[in-house]
């Protein structure tokens, strides 16, 4: 036992970590393919990040510095809970600064600060299968992946265009990895999709309840599906962040009163805070 908690370093037993590590290595070797793994019951509920936690627990070492975000923010309740879990069971250093972290576990966002070589981004994934809403059966979707038969997804997106004049998927927007596997990027806004393409960082995806791990190695092509006459585009705001003035970040809309009052602020709290610090220092 490494720590006073009575549990092994980073909670998981060594046999479980080895099994997860082997799955991660296969996932990296087959970019975008969902590797089944013997997901364990964690002391946090399924659906609350158990896949990401298991991946992080298998990867993290004593020298790592961990950042955990939910909705882009370090101080949301679930991010706080997961960060505490690792600080307690692994005794590792934690940070809120994107560039200071060696491992970043995330739910629903990719940080605005560009990631660097050597960093690992661990995504919490609720539903790993990109074809799940189109075909609920695992046996069928597995065949479709084997044959790279993704016609149903193109049809679905095209039906959106016929009906709404645009693709009506705004988050968890499907991507093709390395020209082969259709992949769900987890429910990040499509605003973040371009950050996955040729990222210098290693991206690992853990789905605990669904028992799948997948990966995008650094410098790997990640293409958001689109059509020649309807190219992929990301969200844009007419407003700037009310706190730091950023016009290039994903903005959360905050309701300020019951008379239609709204303000927009960066969803990435580290990015916003650092910008404000820099502005104050410059004054």
């Amino acid at each position: 036992m490494t720590h006073a908690t009575g549990y092994n370093f980073a909670y998981l037993d060594e046999q479980t970590k080895r099994m997860i590590r082997r799955a991660i290595l296969k996932a990296v070797a087959i970019p975008g393919y969902q590797v089944p793994f013997g997901s364990r019951e964690m002391p946090l509920p399924y659906g609350w990040g158990t896949g990401g936690i298991q991946v992080t627990a298998a990867v993290i070492g004593a020298d790592d510095t961990l950042k955990v975000i939910d909705q882009g923010a370090d101080d949301t309740t679930n991010a706080v809970s997961i960060r505490r879990f690792f600080a307690r069971t692994a005794g590792i250093a934690t940070t809120e600064r994107t560039e200071a972290a060696t491992i970043i576990q995330t739910r629903h966002r990719i940080p605005e600060t560009p990631l660097a070589e050597g960093q690992i981004l661990v995504y919490q994934v609720p539903i790993p299968e990109p074809l799940r809403w189109l075909e609920p059966r695992e046996t069928e979707t597995r065949k479709m992946h084997a044959l790279a038969d993704y016609g149903v997804m193109h049809v679905k997106l095209y039906e959106d265009i016929a009906r709404f004049g645009r693709i009506a998927t705004t988050y968890d927007y499907p991507v093709l990895v390395n020209g082969r596997y259709l992949m769900r990027p987890s429910p990040i806004p499509k605003f973040d999709n371009p950050k996955m393409h040729m990222s210098p960082a290693l991206q690992l995806f853990g789905a605990g309840r669904e028992k799948r791990i997948y990966a995008v190695p650094p410098y790997t092509a990640v293409k958001s599906l689109d059509f020649d006459d309807h190219p992929f585009e990301v969200q844009a705001w007419d407003q700037a962040c009310a706190l730091c003035g950023a016009t290039d970040s994903f903005l959360d809309e905050v309701v300020t009163d019951d008379k239609g009052g709204r303000m927009y602020v960066c969803s990435d709290t580290d990015y916003c805070g650092r910008r404000r610090e820099a502005q104050e220092a410059a004054q």
Partner: peptide
């Protein structure tokens, strides 16, 4: 140290496989 050494070697293999 089976726990920490296994982790270090895994990270070395992961780095090699990812790059």
């Amino acid at each position: 140290d089976p726990v920490l050494d296994s982790q270090r070697v895994f990270r070395a293999v992961l780095e090699a496989t990812a790059r």
